[in-house]
Design a protein around this nucleic acid. Structure first.
Lengths: 113, 113
DNA sequence: GCATCATATGCCGATATAGGCATATGTCAA
DNA sequence: TTGACATATGCCTATATCGGCATATGATGC
């Protein structure tokens, strides 16, 4: 079944590195498509498609400004991701300590595949 | 070019809902593959494949325990995601306020497509 | 209307994915 | 060794994805 549609899931939407880049760029303020495309070194249709995904998920909103269409950040959905990962906060320290020993013993045995 | 390999990017690895579920389950402690498969209502090979992805990214580690192989959480990588989304923390409140007005005006116009 | 600029869509191809199923590998115990 | 159990791999199919390219839609100004 391939994978859940990128347009329905924020996690999936930000799985694409270029889309993450777009979000970062938009932190500096609203931008038209062309400018984003240029900044990321991709084609205009390419940028439009990524923005479409981001828009469907709600990470981005657009606004007409003359001939242009300005895209702006809507980070509310990112909060969900932040909170989900936050649910593991106790673990990214704890697991480190508690499991350190056996990680050592594991090091050479696996590592591959 | 399809998409970046799920095995090289944490964002991609957690883009899969069932893999996220696995991580959540592992918060309760180490678990063998079969138990995870059962808990998630998927086949054993299915669970093994997801675990393989999670292992390659480093979100999970395994340990032999008799016949079984226990999988345990290694949440360190999730910290990166947490911090990346945290970089938008100022925006998921601010954007709400600042853009509220035009969101209203937008509501009926788009919404679809 | 028409020309121009800005953006979106459609179609294509290459690739990756997830899931199902059979089967291989691995590990223990007798 | 053999058998039983646990897990991993391989092969297959259906589907999604991203990127490129051409082109359609949209908006502006003349």
């Amino acid at each position: 079944m391939a994978r859940a549609a990128t347009t329905s899931d924020v996690f999936n939407a930000i799985a694409e590195p270029q889309r993450r880049e777009i979000l970062v760029l938009l932190r500096a303020g609203e931008r038209p498509v062309t400018e984003l495309a240029q900044a990321l070194g991709m084609t205009q249709p390419g940028a439009s498609k990524h923005l479409r995904v981001l828009r469907k998920v709600g990470l981005v909103r657009d606004r007409k400004a003359g001939k242009q269409r300005l895209y702006g950040l809507d980070a509310r959905q990112l909060r969900a991701v932040h909170e989900w990962t936050g649910g593991f906060e106790g673990f990214w320290n704890e697991s480190f300590d508690r499991l350190d020993a056996y990680v050592q013993g594991l090091k050479q045995a696996r590592q591959k595949e």
